[in-house]
Design a protein around this nucleic acid. Structure first.
Length: 505
RNA sequence: AGCCCCGUAGUGCAGCGGUUAGCACAAGAGACUCUGGAUCUCUAGACACCAGUUCGAAUCUGGUCGGGGCUGCCA
């Protein structure tokens, strides 16, 4: 494969973007080795081709100002009018074009146009502009040029020069294909085939460069790599793996139909990959203190935990256990519904890889549980009951004195509705989800995680997949939630909420 | 309105003249489980419509309806 940038417009090409595109595409897993090209590599050749067209009487220099060109183009239903400069002699065109190149004219005073048909039903064929004058410095050619080719003129030439067999692009270029073909045929050069396909749309987000740019510029997100954005750098920072993104793309396929893929399908592919590859850890996002009354004050034990049940070869690690622990606030309920399996007063549950514990008493402050008094069964060490008794659930925990603090950023969909762009007469930003980011600063995680580096991915048991954010510093470990684990419990709750809504008023 | 493109389960794709119209996700039911995860089993669900061609049409033709794109010296 090769990588080519269509850098035909000096005003819109910035080194910064070029480099980040290169970095991101490489990260995604593509390697073009030394085959990195730019449209600007072919500027000389394109200039020669333009002269060839002029000599064939198929291109002319137009003096009409921009607004007049627009006016003369006509409309969707009305044909355009010929420019008064359309029938200049070949010699005059050659002379003028040469002088455009040497910088004799200011920006916008003249353009080179293809001589096709001002009455053509396809607007793109009404004498399209091939070259415009721009006294601007180009990031690769510097000040060598003051005329720059238009994309439509340049694109087919680049493909032809590189002898591409098929040139794929997005649907909005369908109407440009006749022009692509016309230029190549007029020149009589090698003619690749342009094929268009639909761009990807995802629910609950926006995909267009223009719209993403607005979100970044106006500060609705923290930057191009904000983990809520569907940019490659955003997905990377969110913790998506390259292989899962590739698997997703492969499965959604390509079509010529403007479709909208469920965001959940992306998440499915992420989970599928991360489930197989992520090491497991335990971390408590919203801590609730519990004290094991019949466990000795002084004692600490090292308990063995599996690193990845999907891949036993990854081995095990030790987790410290002691009298005072943290569990997740959600894992305790004083008055639980019937189908709640977790901890409640008088019920026994398993602490993962540790012991069976029973809750004896809740200590509350201002009506909220702040501490649980529990007992444990020493015979259940490691989480197995020798007498074969069952427990309804297994919950995660960390030892209070051993745990490491961390900041955890939880992400939710960027928009509150599936298609924020498709709402007639409404600005897509009206549908931004104010809760798309939630920051938890009082999380506690198991000590083995101290060595994790930025971008490392892992699973917090029962919570989801996470990764280390590059904002991490020596004293502040920052973690991003990539995606939650599927959970029949949260699903049930969502259903319940939905079913109640209509009756709520 | 002129030109171009597109219509297959809720979603995304496959199907290229003869298939019980296939796959994945989502949905529903169950099994299993030291993650309410993973895994496994099962269920429901679609060819936009109308003509025509043909022994036979989701597939070919025409029309209707519906969706999208196009009036930058942007790409």
């Amino acid at each position: 494969m090769r990588n080519r940038f269509d850098d035909t417009n000096p005003a819109k090409e910035e080194e910064e973007y070029v480099q980040s595109i290169i970095d991101n595409v490489k990260w995604l897993g593509f390697d073009w080795e030394d085959r990195l090209f730019f449209a600007s590599d072919y500027f000389d050749q394109m200039y020669e081709y333009a002269i060839q067209l002029i000599k064939a009487g198929k291109a002319y220099v137009d003096d009409l100002p921009a607004d007049q060109i627009t006016e003369f183009r006509g409309t969707l239903t009305q044909p355009g009018k010929n420019s008064p400069y359309r029938d200049r002699s070949i010699e005059e065109n050659l002379n003028l074009f040469q002088r455009m190149k040497t910088g004799e004219f200011p920006d916008g005073q003249k353009v080179l146009r293809a001589k096709i048909d001002m009455a053509h039903p396809n607007l793109n064929m009404r004498d399209p502009v091939m070259y415009r004058i721009l006294h601007a410095s180009h990031h690769r050619t510097g000040d060598r040029w003051c005329i720059y080719p238009m994309y439509d003129w340049a694109h087919g030439l680049e493909d032809s020069i590189e002898r591409i067999t098929h040139s794929i692009c997005t649907l909005e270029f369908e109407n440009h294909r006749p022009l692509y073909d016309w230029f190549l045929d007029a020149l009589g050069v090698y003619h690749p085939q342009q094929i268009e396909f639909a761009r990807l749309n995802l629910t609950y987000t926006v995909m267009s460069k223009r719209l993403l740019f607005q979100l970044v510029e106006e500060g609705h997100v923290a930057g191009w790599d904000d983990p809520r954005l569907p940019t490659i750098s955003g997905m990377r920072r969110r913790g998506y793996s390259p292989s899962s993104i590739r698997a997703f793309c492969k499965r959604i396929g390509v079509a010529k139909f403007n479709s909208m893929v469920d965001f959940e399908f992306l998440e499915h592919n992420i989970r599928e990959d991360l489930n197989k590859t992520s090491p497991r850890f335990m971390g408590v996002l919203r801590p609730l203190k519990i004290v094991i009354e019949n466990y000795s004050d002084q004692q600490t034990e090292e308990l063995e935990a599996v690193n990845n049940p999907e891949e036993p070869a990854r081995g095990t690690r030790k987790i410290p256990f002691s009298k005072t622990l943290f569990i997740e606030q959600d894992d305790f309920m004083e008055n639980p519904p019937k189908d709640y399996y977790r901890l409640t007063v008088g019920r026994e549950v398993r602490l993962r890889y540790a012991y069976f514990i029973k809750c004896l008493e809740v200590i509350k402050k201002d009506g909220r549980p702040v501490e649980l008094r529990c007992s444990y069964d020493p015979a259940t060490k490691g989480g197995y009951a020798p007498d074969g008794r069952k427990v309804k659930s297994t919950i995660h925990w960390v030892s209070m004195s051993h745990a490491v603090p961390a900041e955890v950023r939880l992400y939710d969909r960027l928009f509150t509705i599936a298609d924020p762009v498709g709402q007639k007469g409404m600005d897509f930003k009206e549908f931004l989800n104010p809760q798309s980011l939630e920051v938890l600063r009082d999380c506690r995680i198991e000590p083995a995680m101290k060595t994790l580096k930025p971008f490392e991915r892992f699973q917090f048991e029962r919570l989801g997949y996470f990764c280390v954010d590059p904002d991490t510093t020596k004293d502040n470990l920052v973690l991003n939630r990539t995606v939650e684990l599927r959970s029949s419990w949260t699903k049930l709750q969502k259903q319940r909420r939905k079913n109640q809504e209509p009756f709520n008023t």
